[in-house]
């Protein structure tokens, strides 16, 4: 279920804050960075993803669009190699492919699934306090942040986020416990803000 997690990471807003290499990012700092995006109402961004299965030396490539509608809706649309849509809306997870639709409820899943889902909500709300409860964050360089999961049961070792010059998420890569890697490169996002 850490699929949800990656989606959460893909909604991560860009930040322009930059400090020294491997500087731990505290609550106040993360709140400050995330605070810039409190006014965002929706986001749409294209992506290209490469998943590397290390043991068989295989790269799976896919591309699609990520749409976020705050506070609770996320669409992860894979267009290649074959269309596949995943829609997260509150408690509901919908999978659509080839005209078929499967619906799941996060609350009916396991405790682990539920935790992952709540993780996602934390990211969607850009709740720095909640994020820091589950991750240790360090700044590795200019516009480069590494998130270490505190709980190994989350299914991944670490996640690295790079921001572009103007502060949007440019690449996101994470290493799974099994050793596989997923690297996602995002296009230029279209962001809408709520009118104060």
């Amino acid at each position: 279920m850490y699929l949800i997690f990656i989606l959460a990471m893909q909604c991560m807003p860009s930040t322009t804050s930059a400090t020294s290499i491997l500087t731990p990012v505290g609550k106040a700092e993360l709140q400050r960075v995330l605070g810039k995006y409190q006014a965002m109402s929706s986001l749409e961004v294209s992506f290209k993803q490469t998943k590397t299965l290390k043991d068989i030396q295989l790269k799976l490539e896919s591309e699609g669009v990520l749409k976020v509608q705050l506070p609770n809706t996320v669409e992860w649309k894979i267009q290649k190699p074959q269309p596949l849509e995943m829609l997260l809306d509150k408690d509901v997870i919908k999978l659509k492919s080839d005209g078929k639709e499967s619906i799941f409820h996060a609350s009916e899943g396991s405790a682990k699934d539920q935790r992952a889902f709540h993780d996602l909500l934390n990211w969607l709300r850009l709740d720095a306090s909640a994020i820091l409860e589950n991750y240790n964050v360090v700044q590795e360089g200019k516009n480069r942040y590494r998130f270490h999961a505190k709980n190994s049961a989350s299914g991944m070792k670490s996640l690295v986020m790079n921001l572009n010059r103007i502060g949007h998420v440019e690449t996101l890569s994470f290493e799974e416990l099994a050793g596989d890697e997923i690297a996602i490169r995002f296009g230029t996002p279209a962001v809408k803000y709520t009118v104060p």
Partner: peptide, 17 residues
Amino acid sequence: QKSMGLVLSKASMPLPR
């Protein structure tokens, strides 16, 4: 092609091994 593509799309997501 269609079916394999769909499975590869699924496989591209983070999944337990």
